[in-house]
Amino acid sequence: MNYAQLLFPDFSLILCGYLICRFTALNRAVWGQVEVLVYYLLFPVLLFHSIVKSPLDFDAASSLIGAGWAMGLSGIALAYVLPHLPGLATHIDRRDHASSAQVAFRFNSFIGLAIADRVAGPQGLSLIAVLIGVCVPLFNVAAVWPMAKQGNAGFLRELVRNPLIIATASGLAANLMGFVLPTWLEPTVSRLGAASLALGLMAAGAGMQLGALAKGKALAIAVLSIRHFLLPLVALGMAYLFALDTTQTTVLLAFSALPTASSCYVLAARMGYDGAYVAGLVTLSTLLGVVSLPFALGLLRPLAQ
């Protein structure tokens, strides 16, 4: 399978966002508002809809969920320990680490949902929706904790205001209670979700910037190495450990190699941290996704068979 060709539609939207932002009147001020719209409305709608539209079989997906959580907790642990590693401690600013640790384990759901059907079919789309549903709360709690602790902010207050956690928790609750979206509302919700994918990918491109990374190169290398190299290797180990089938392994490896969430810098800036630095990490992570996804799916996946 040609993974570069497979990923082209998604990364072409990112490139379009970058070019439009840099070379037209639709500049950064415009795309900043688009990010807010996607983060607070469109993407929560997509998350909620993707979770409630199909009954979740937690028993059938229990091994994948366990592998996803184990991989995620490994990424969180690796990110948290960075300031305490010999040789790195003196080169890492604690405040920058608090805001950018999330880059090492959060993921771009837009790209994940966009490619899941193409790499693993309808079953893959359903499985990655389950992974997103169970991992978003964990990963967002882990993202908020260092910043709340470092900035003496209210941890619980930040969690209950996070739209992705609200959408995921309500979607899971609705699914478990057997809620079915009314037929007349389905087209509207579907179109809002589709808009979130296109606008989210373009907004990620519009937000790309690298200049701020000059001040924290060691931290940047560390968190991006976890995100794009170590986590796919951990995912391969978890596929063996949890005895995942071929489709589950494909989904987990794709999930492990996704670029980091474009909302990382929105969250960092909203909590009073250096959004430009985190935006630079998101930019590099987005570009590295072109390498890490073929690495996970093209090189590592055959080893799991």
Results as ranks from 00 to 15, higher is better:
residue 1 M to H: 14
residue 4 A to H: 13
residue 9 P to Q: 10
residue 20 I to C: 11
residue 21 C to V: 04
residue 22 R to L: 05
residue 24 T to C: 01
residue 24 T to I: 05
residue 27 N to T: 02
residue 34 V to R: 05
residue 36 V to C: 03
residue 44 P to A: 08
residue 48 F to T: 10
residue 50 S to G: 15
residue 50 S to R: 14
residue 51 I to C: 13
residue 57 D to H: 09
residue 58 F to C: 10
residue 59 D to Y: 09
residue 65 I to G: 02
residue 66 G to C: 11
residue 71 M to D: 06
residue 72 G to W: 04
residue 78 L to A: 02
residue 79 A to H: 03
residue 79 A to F: 09
residue 82 L to N: 00
residue 83 P to D: 15
residue 87 G to P: 06
residue 87 G to M: 09
residue 90 T to M: 02
residue 92 I to E: 01
residue 96 D to R: 10
residue 100 S to W: 00
residue 106 R to S: 01
residue 109 S to N: 15
residue 113 L to E: 10
residue 116 A to G: 08
residue 116 A to W: 02
residue 117 D to V: 07
residue 117 D to A: 12
residue 119 V to N: 12
residue 121 G to Y: 11
residue 122 P to D: 12
residue 124 G to R: 06
residue 125 L to W: 02
residue 131 L to F: 04
residue 134 V to A: 07
residue 137 P to I: 08
residue 140 N to P: 11
residue 140 N to L: 02
residue 143 A to L: 10
residue 144 V to W: 08
residue 148 A to W: 08
residue 160 V to T: 04
residue 165 I to W: 07
residue 165 I to G: 07
residue 165 I to C: 13
residue 167 A to T: 08
residue 170 S to T: 14
residue 174 A to L: 12
residue 177 M to F: 13
residue 178 G to L: 06
residue 178 G to D: 03
residue 182 P to M: 09
residue 186 E to F: 03
residue 192 L to H: 00
residue 194 A to M: 14
residue 196 S to H: 03
residue 204 A to L: 12
residue 205 G to A: 07
residue 206 A to T: 10
residue 208 M to V: 04
residue 208 M to I: 05
residue 209 Q to A: 08
residue 209 Q to G: 11
residue 214 A to N: 09
residue 215 K to M: 07
residue 218 A to F: 00
residue 232 P to D: 01
residue 234 V to D: 04
residue 235 A to Q: 10
residue 236 L to C: 12
residue 242 F to P: 04
residue 243 A to C: 01
residue 244 L to C: 07
residue 245 D to L: 03
residue 247 T to K: 15
residue 258 L to V: 04
residue 265 Y to H: 11
residue 268 A to Q: 02
residue 272 G to V: 11
residue 273 Y to K: 09
residue 278 V to K: 02
residue 278 V to G: 06
residue 287 L to S: 01
residue 290 V to K: 07
residue 292 S to M: 01
residue 300 L to G: 14
residue 302 P to Q: 05
residue 303 L to V: 13
residue 304 A to S: 15
residue 305 Q to V: 12
